[in-house]
Amino acid sequence: MSAPRRRSRALQPAPADAAEEQPVELAVIARQAGVRVSVVRHYVAFGLFERCSGSNEVPLFEPSCAGRLAKAERLRRDLGLNYAGAVLACELVDRIRELEQQRGQDLPTA
């Protein structure tokens, strides 16, 4: 199965800050999350997120991956998890949030 190329609807850019929503290189994601590139590569290998465009040589990622990366890293450090465990925890949390939303247990309202 190939990685989805289409930019996901959820991350559709708001016109106001379209410039900063462009896909970025891994090093940018790493810097924004405050995580070393070598650490990010572990997470990519475990499938925490996938490239959205670019080539295999120069993969590009959604800027929002930085948030996901920082979350996995916080979980890994705080709970003593390994990479696989942190990725699994992120995926399970996403799944729980989805189910909660389907059941109408909604996010806080801004």
């Binding site: 924004q32 405050g34 929002s64 930085a66 948030g67 920082a70 996010l107 806080p108 801004a110």
Partner: peptide, 16 residues
């Protein structure tokens, strides 16, 4: 000392 700087949590809310 922690293990270095780390970005803060993303938050999410619904806007009706």
């Amino acid at each position: 000392a922690g293990s270095g700087p780390l970005r803060g949590r993303d938050r999410e809310a619904v806007l009706e």
